[in-house]
Design a binder for these strands. Structure first.
Lengths: 233, 233
DNA sequence: ACCTGAACACCGTTCAAGT
DNA sequence: ACCTGAACACCGTTCAAGT
């Protein structure tokens, strides 16, 4: 019996190819190298095969990326972390969106991807359901809930993409300070409004921390939903 | 005198290389081929030279894209089109943002780019100044104006990117109908909130036209700004 | 200073041929 | 059915050598 060749011991057995194995290896590659380096060719190399073999299981690069996004959405904490169902609907909603952005900020390249990729996997559906429940609990009308969920997620996704990108890519910081420099040298004569908005400290156009501004924006949206509900009653 | 060789007549004179000429050709290439095909190599070919020559004037591909974005922002109508200063601040703001999105929807790939590229050119600064003026006219406080401008532009940019992408790329429509199918088959037992939001017609989660939803979102933001101003007065 | 040929180090995707 | 070698048609960027 047991006549598995010794070579199996020396080099780890080449894992059988499967969609699951491919997506798993893709997520691992994402974690170590980032989405930019998650290419069909590199992935094939990791799996010890040629790129052509992947096309049996994955339609193309875009489909691969979508599968990876689906996978990551499973790590979002839907229960509001520490709160565990405690706290007002507004607090739990803040916690949920913060967890969502945290996941994406950890993978800025995926955040960028997810701005333009509508997932449809089970994790995304569960996220939608939970968010809708919180908004309904807040007393929003059906339309405000249905349309608002999109807006909240869009906002959270974009913020995560921006923040993560700034953190990750040196080029982005350059662009940022290009803008900061341009704002600083704006003249009160030609851009009166902008000049005032720039020179106003923490309430100015460049003021506040990312977290402050994120929380502020979420409340703006929620208050806007509430006001909108009153208008089309 | 006049001893320009006849060959000049037969083949149009090779235009002198310059940053201006390069960006001009880049915009032309963008219009005909889209951002995806606006590569250093193609651009060089159009300019009848090798790719290496472009690096004398443009730092890299990213800088080229940023320059192209700057260029396009110049075509946004800041005066609110038909309104020409008529109408309430809210109406003019809607008109301005609509013009902004229209420009970006016409070039979906640039819209995608501009979600993650903070321009700092004169056209962007003028846009900021005009928006700030409209918000101030609406009676918003300094913080609401300064932070709100970002939010409005972010929203408009993202919507344009999404809408344009859906219009342009067949793959996006596939993703979309993947999601529509997933939503349609959601069970009331496992996803009660989502189930209700799906089966609610025009006010449902997939209801309304893009324009409806865009306008609704802008008003949500504006109402949210107004509510937020009351809170931290 | 400006320009460029040629090279380096990559890509995604397809397809005929193998097992 | 699954897998793959090899090819096709591209990329961005650098650099030594030319003008």
């Amino acid at each position: 019996m047991s006549d598995a060749p010794v070579s199996r011991r020396q080099r780890p057995a080449k894992p059988a190819l499967s969609r699951e194995a491919i997506v798993g290896a893709a997520v691992a590659l994402l974690r170590t190298e980032g989405l930019e380096r998650l290419t069909m060719r590199r992935l094939a190399a990791v799996l010890d095969t040629g790129p052509a073999s992947l096309y049996v299981y994955v339609r193309n690069t875009e489909a691969l990326h979508a599968a990876v996004l689906d996978e990551l959405l499973g790590t979002v904490d839907l229960d509001g972390g520490d709160l565990e169902g405690e706290g007002s609907w507004r607090e739990r909603l803040h916690a949920l969106l913060t967890s969502y952005t945290a996941v994406l900020v950890a993978f800025p390249s995926v955040a960028r991807l997810s701005v333009f990729t509508r997932p449809s996997g089970p994790n995304y559906l569960r996220l939608l359901d939970t968010l809708l429940g919180l908004l309904a609990e807040g007393g929003l009308g059906p339309k405000q809930c249905a349309w608002g969920v999109d807006l909240l997620l869009l906002h959270a996704t974009t913020i995560a993409a921006e923040h993560g990108t700034r953190r990750e890519r040196p080029g982005a910081e350059e662009e940022d300070s290009d803008l900061v420099a341009a704002l600083a040298s704006v003249s009160a004569d030609t851009h009166p409004q902008l000049y005032r908005a720039v020179h106003r400290g923490p309430d100015g156009i460049t003021g506040g921390t990312g977290a402050d501004r994120f929380a502020w924006a979420v409340d703006v949206l929620l208050d806007g939903f509430l006001a909108s509900a009153g208008q089309d009653a």
